[in-house]
């Protein structure tokens, strides 16, 4: 474990791992594959084969009220274990099994103290930056369509 990792609480660690898994889930299969292949991943065993299933998405009445079931999404998940014992998981929308497997391996590697920094620097940070940039483009394009409506006043005023 690195110094930074050992000084964090379990909650911080879970939050950081949630972020890693979220970045991998949001990445395209091609982007994950590209980063994965550069890693020279060590041997691992499969705990749970990549599997595609459904998650029922919920909304809330009025956006803030009681929940209701909106409709399903396809989700693919996978669990692997490194020979050093770390277990990696992946959950993401869609049906890409290769992406699920590769994401699970990256998640496990991220939990290895000595390689975490490399995973952060070479996989997570660049993918997160790409995703943030794409979102920023959407925000900027949307902002350009902002309107100011004027209410027409009847009479002299």
């Amino acid at each position: 474990m690195t110094d930074t990792a050992s000084s964090t609480t379990p909650q911080d660690s879970a939050t950081a791992r949630q972020n890693v898994m979220a970045v991998l889930a949001a990445a395209s299969p091609e982007a994950v594959a590209e980063r994965f292949e550069r890693l020279d991943a060590p041997p691992f065993g499969i705990v749970r084969q990549p599997e595609t299933g459904l998650v029922m998405v919920r909304g809330r009445m009025g956006g803030t009220g009681s929940p209701f079931n909106l409709g399903e999404v396809t989700v693919t998940r996978c669990v692997i274990r490194l020979e050093t014992g770390e277990t990696g998981s992946a959950y993401s929308l869609g049906r890409n099994k290769k992406k699920a497997l590769q994401s699970a391996v990256i998640d496990a590697l991220w939990q290895c103290g000595e390689i975490r920094e490399r995973i952060e620097a070479e996989v997570i940070a660049p993918l997160a930056a790409e995703q943030a940039a794409a979102k920023e483009t959407v925000r900027e394009e949307t902002e350009a369509t902002k309107v100011n409506f004027f209410t027409m006043v009847r009479g002299d005023n």
């Binding site: 299933g53 459904l54 998650v55 029922m56 919920r58 909304g59 079931n69 396809t74 989700v75």
Partner: peptide, 16 residues
């Protein structure tokens, strides 16, 4: 397909 479960309710206030 198998059903994995139910999502947390989506937060439309946090929408992009």
């Amino acid at each position: 397909l198998p059903r994995f479960g139910y999502s947390e309710p989506v937060d439309t206030a946090a929408m992009l």
